[in-house]
Design a binder for these strands. Structure first.
Length: 490
RNA sequence: GCUCCGGUAGUAUAGCCCGGUCAAGUAUGGCGGCCUCUCGAGCCGCAGACGGGGGUUCAAAUCCCCCCCGGAGCACCA
C-alpha cells in the first residue's frame, strides 16, 4: 500500500470505519474497512469503529446489523480499538449546534426545501440567514421542544453562497424527525432533532482524533462542506483519501437494493450465495484473508473498478488449496457396470495429493460374478464413447462397450495407472454402487446440484472447506441427514 | 445542466508527482507444454494494454491543450 500522507504531522495515526448499521456489510465496504484497519496497523495506530445511526426514518438502522457488522469485522480480522455509536452522542452534537448558533455561524431555516434551493441556486441568502443569534437559539429551542413539526425547520451551517458547487452552500446540519412515528431502534423517541451526516461525522472525526479518513469518493463534496464547519470551529480537517467505486461482476453492491430484495424474499437471507455480503462469502468458503489480500492489492486508488470474481477466487484458492481434503462427489449419479473384473479392488487415494502425510481414503469394489458396479457423474458421460478406455481414478481401467439408457456397460481393461497414461485414457471419479452419502451443493447462482459424495466424507465437520475432485472447492454447511455444501469456486 | 474525480492487456495492479533505464513490470484469466492417478496445485512458454488527437522536448504512459468515454455529487440519506 502507498504510504499515508503527512503521517509525521500527527502523533499517532487514527483511522475509522463508520457504517450506517442499516444493512449487512458487503464487498463494497471492504475497502473502507480493510484499508483503514491495515493502515492503522501499518503505522501502529488506532482503528475506530463508529456506528452512524443518525437517521431513524429513511435509512433506519436495525439492531441486528449492529451485531452483524461487529461479527463481519472480527471475521475479516479487523479488530477495532474503540467503538462509538452516534445515537449515544446526540447531546454532544447539540452542544456544538448551540455554539455555532450563538456565534452566528449557523441558523435555523424554516424555508421549504424548494424555496431554499431556488434562492441558493441564485446565490441569494434565504430570509432566515440574517437572523440574530438570539432568534436562532429560540428557534432551536422550538425544534427541540416540538413546536416545529417534522420538516418545518432545519439548522444550516453557513458556508459561502458563492461557492461554485450549490451543494455546499449553507448545507443542512440538523433536521426534525417525528420519533414517535419513527422510533430509533436504540434510543426510541428520546430525541426529535437529529444531526445529518456532515455534521455528526465532521464533529466526530475531530473529537475522536481521526487523522486519516479513508472513504469512497462519493464523499468528495462532503469534505468541502465539512471544511466550513471545521473553519467555524477552528479545527483542522484531517487527511482524507477517497477511493473509487468498487463493483464486482454480476453482484449488486447497493445496500438499498440488497435490503429491499432480502425483505421481499428474493434472497434466502443476508448470506444468500448470490449476494456479495461478507456473510454470503463466508458461507461459501471464501476466507477473510483472501478478501484482505485482494483489497490491499487494489489499494486506495480513486478510479472506479469492476472486479472479476476470479480476482477473489485466485487469492482464495491459494489459501484453501493446501488445506482442503479431497473427496469424490458424483453429481447426478449414473450407473456403470464393468464386466470381467477378475477380483475385488480397493482404491487408496490420498486425502491431499501433495500431502501424503495426512492420510488417505479407501473405496472398495467387490465384483459379483465378475461384474463390478460403480456410480459416475452424468457430466462424464460425454467421455464414454464406445471403445474408449477410461480410468476410474485409483481403481482400474475399463473399455466402454455400450451405452444404454440407464447404464453404461464396460469391460475390464487393466489395473495399472501407467497403462491409462500410455493410452491417454481420461481419468474420472466414481463411487462404489450402493454407497455414497446424499449431498446437495448450493451454487453461487442459488441453484442446487445434487449427487452422492463418498462415504469417507462422513467425518468432515461443518465449516470445513474441501475439494470435490474435478468439481470444485466447497464449504460444508450442514450435515443433518443429507449433506449440504456451498460451492466456492473451481 | 452544474461541480468534481477518473481512464495502463479480459480483470486487477506497478510506473505518472521527480520525462529517458518502459519496444511498459506483476498477479489473475486465456492458450500451449511439462508434471501430477482431479478439470486442483506446481513448473515452463505464448498471446494480450498506455482512450483519441494535437503540442512541448533530442526524448512523453509520464508535462500542456482539446476531444471522447466512465463515475460521483448536486437529499431535511450515510
Amino acid at each position: 500500500m502507498p504510504p499515508l500522507p503527512n503521517v509525521e504531522k500527527y502523533g499517532r495515526v487514527v483511522t475509522r470505519f463508520a457504517p450506517n448499521p442499516d444493512c449487512a456489510l458487503h464487498l463494497g465496504s471492504a475497502r473502507a474497512i480493510i484499508l483503514s484497519h491495515e493502515y492503522a496497523r501499518m503505522y501502529n495506530g488506532k482503528f475506530i469503529l463508529r456506528l452512524e445511526d443518525t437517521d431513524p426514518r429513511l435509512k433506519r438502522s436495525a439492531l441486528e446489523f449492529f451485531e452483524m457488522i461487529r461479527e463481519d469485522l472480527l471475521w475479516l480480522g479487523c479488530k477495532w480499538d474503540e467503538e462509538y455509536i452516534q445515537s449515544d452522542r446526540i447531546p454532544i452534537y447539540y452542544g456544538f449546534a448551540e455554539r455555532l448558533l450563538e456565534e452566528g455561524k449557523a441558523y435555523i431555516c424554516t424555508c421549504t426545501p424548494k424555496e431554499f434551493r431556488a434562492r441558493v441556486q441564485l446565490k441569494e441568502p434565504c430570509p432566515c440567514r440574517g437572523l440574530e443569534p438570539g432568534e436562532n437559539l429560540a428557534r432551536w429551542e422550538r425544534m427541540l421542544d416540538g413546536s416545529y413539526g417534522e420538516g418545518e425547520a432545519v439548522m444550516r451551517v453557513k458556508t459561502d453562497l458563492n461557492h461554485p458547487n450549490p451543494a455546499v452552500r449553507d448545507w443542512p446540519a440538523f433536521r426534525i424527525i417525528d420519533t414517535r412515528k419513527y422510533p430509533h431502534p436504540r434510543v426510541g423517541d428520546k430525541y426529535r432533532v437529529w444531526p445529518l451526516y456532515n455534521f455528526a461525522a465532521g464533529i466526530d472525526d475531530h473529537l475522536l482524533g481521526i487523522t486519516h479518513i479513508i472513504r469512497g469518493k462519493e464523499h468528495l463534496t462532503n469534505q468541502l462542506r465539512q471544511e466550513y464547519l471545521y473553519r467555524h470551529l477552528g479545527w483542522e480537517y484531517p487527511e482524507a483519501i477517497h477511493y473509487g467505486r468498487l463493483k464486482i461482476v454480476g453482484a449488486s453492491l447497493s445496500k438499498s437494493k440488497i435490503l429491499r430484495d432480502v425483505r421481499r424474499g428474493l434472497y434466502k437471507g443476508w448470506d444468500d450465495p448470490r449476494l456479495a455480503t461478507f456473510a454470503a462469502l463466508r458461507r461459501r468458503g471464501i476466507r477473510p484473508e483472501a478478501i484482505r489480500r485482494l483489497i490491499i492489492e487494489i489499494g486506495p486508488r480513486p478510479s472506479d473498478i469492476v472486479l472479476s470474481w476470479e480476482n477473489l477466487y485466485a487469492h482464495n484458492r491459494k489459501i484453501i488449496d493446501p488445506e482442503a481434503k479431497r473427496y469424490f462427489f458424483v453429481k447426478n449419479p449414473f450407473r456403470l457396470l464393468v464386466r470381467g473384473v477378475p477380483r475385488s479392488f480397493t482404491a487408496e487415494i490420498p486425502l491431499h495429493p501433495s500431502r501424503p502425510e495426512i492420510g488417505s481414503r479407501r473405496l472398495h469394489v467387490e465384483p459379483v460374478n465378475g461384474e463390478a458396479s460403480v456410480l459416475i457423474s452424468d457430466s462424464d458421460l460425454n467421455l464414454l464413447r464406445e471403445g474408449a478406455v477410461i480410468r476410474l481414478i485409483g481403481l482400474f481401467n475399463f473399455e466402454v462397450e455400450s451405452l444404454e439408457e440407464r447404464r453404461v456397460v464396460g469391460v475390464f481393461h487393466s489395473q495399472a495407472h501407467d497403462e491409462a497414461k500410455r493410452l491417454g485414457a481420461p481419468l474420472i471419479h466414481w463411487i462404489p454402487d450402493g454407497s455414497g452419502l446424499p449431498c446437495k451443493v448450493v451454487m453461487p447462482d442459488g441453484s442446487v446440484a445434487s449427487g452422492l459424495v463418498e462415504e469417507n466424507f462422513r467425518g468432515v465437520h461443518v465449516g470445513e472447506v474441501v475439494q470435490f475432485e474435478r468439481f470444485g472447492f466447497v464449504r460444508v454447511d450442514g450435515k443433518d441427514g443429507a449433506f449440504t455444501v456451498y460451492f466456492a469456486h473451481k
